[in-house]
Design a protein around this nucleic acid. Structure first.
Ligand code: MN
Ligand code: MN
Ligand code: ZN
Ligand code: ZN
Lengths: 151, 151
DNA sequence: AAACCAAATGCAAAACGTTCGCAGCGCGTT
DNA sequence: AACGCGCTGCGAACGTTTTGCATTTGGTTT
C-alpha cells in the first residue's frame, strides 16, 4: 500500500476540531480556536513563536505551548524537528497520521513538502535485523533553493 | 559507489588528532585531549553533558562546548540530532564524512548504528524535481529494543 | 438564568541546553 | 626563560520551553 501523501487527505473543519476537543473532555476555548485557525491557514510546519504572533498575540505564549501539546497528544497536530532546536507544528487532516518529510533551504528557510516516504521497507529491514519493534523514523532534507542559488 | 559504513574506516590516533589541531594553528590542550579521549572510547553519539562528566569534570562545561564546536568545524567530529533538543557528537575516523544513521530505543535510549544509507538516490530525485542544490538529509530511526519489549 | 466546578488562562518565574564576555592561564614559539 | 596569542574557567546571559499559582471561563447542573 503506497503512501498517497498527506495533502491528499481532506482537512478538518473548525467545527469538527471543536467537536474533537469536546469529545475528549477538553474545552474549545478562544486561544485554542485562534491557534487552530492559524495552523489551518498555513501549509507548512510553523514555529510556536510564529503561531503566537499570527494570533496577533490574542493569547499568551505559554497558552500556545499548552494548546499545541494538547493537540499533539490528541493527534490533531504533528510535531516536526528541523534540527535547529525549535519545534514546528502542522495541522493534521482527517485520517492522516502526518508522516511525511520536508526539503528545507538552509539559506532562507523556504520549505517544500515531500509527499512520498520511500523509507518504509528500510524500516522493516532494520526492525527485523535489530529485534526492535514499532520502528519509526524522522527524515528531513536540506539544500539550497533556486532563489538562493542566484544570490 | 555504495557506502561502506563509517565503522569500516580506521580510527585516528590521539597523536594524529593532536597533529591535526596544531596543523590548523590550534592548540592541543588538556581539555581538548580529555574530550577526544572520551569520544574515542565511545562508539555512539554522546551528549555534551556526558562528555563533560566522563572527563571527570577536569574542564569546564563551556570548554567542552567550545572544543566540540572547533572539532566539528575541523570535521573531526560529527553532530547528530535525535530530536530531543540535545546535541550529540561522534568522533570521525580518517576519510569518513560521518554520514550515517541510528536506531534509538525510545524507552532506554539504547543506540544501534545503521551503517547503510539507502537515501542517496532519493536525494538526487528530490534535488532534480525541486531545483534545490547540495541536498543532504538527516535520518534517524526510533523503536523499542528487545530488552524494553520484555518489561 | 444562576450557580457550580473542573479545566484553562495570563503572568511571572524557573528550567534547560547553549552561548558569550572577560580576566587570567598555558601551549607553542622565539 | 620569556613572550604572545589562544585557550580556559567562571559567571552572566541567551532563546526556547516548562511550571506554579491566582484568576477566569467553558460546559454542565440546578
Ligand atoms: Mn509538511
Ligand atoms: Mn553513529
Ligand atoms: Zn518517512
Ligand atoms: Zn543517509
Amino acid at each position: 500500500m503506497p503512501c498517497r501523501g498527506h495533502h491528499h487527505h481532506k482537512p478538518r473543519s473548525l467545527s469538527e476540531l471543536a467537536a474533537r476537543l469536546r469529545g475528549g473532555a477538553k474545552k474549545f476555548t478562544g486561544p485554542r480556536k485562534a491557534v487552530l485557525e492559524v495552523l489551518a491557514a498555513h501549509p507548512h510546519p510553523m514555529t510556536i513563536k510564529d503561531v503566537h504572533s499570527e494570533t496577533k498575540s490574542e493569547c499568551d505564549l505559554a497558552t500556545v505551548y499548552r494548546a499545541l501539546h494538547l493537540l499533539e497528544e490528541m493527534e490533531l497536530v504533528k510535531r516536526f524537528d528541523f534540527g535547529d532546536g525549535i519545534a514546528r507544528f502542522e495541522l493534521l487532516a482527517e485520517g492522516d497520521d502526518g508522516h511525511h518529510h520536508h526539503l528545507i533551504c538552509t539559506e532562507c528557510s523556504d520549505i517544500i513538502e515531500i509527499e512520498e516516504c520511500f523509507t518504509e521497507s528500510l524500516e522493516e529491514k532494520i526492525a527485523e535485523r535489530s529485534g526492535f519493534k514499532a520502528v519509526t523514523h524522522k527524515l528531513e532534507f536540506f539544500g539550497i533553493c533556486p532563489d538562493c542559488q542566484k544570490r
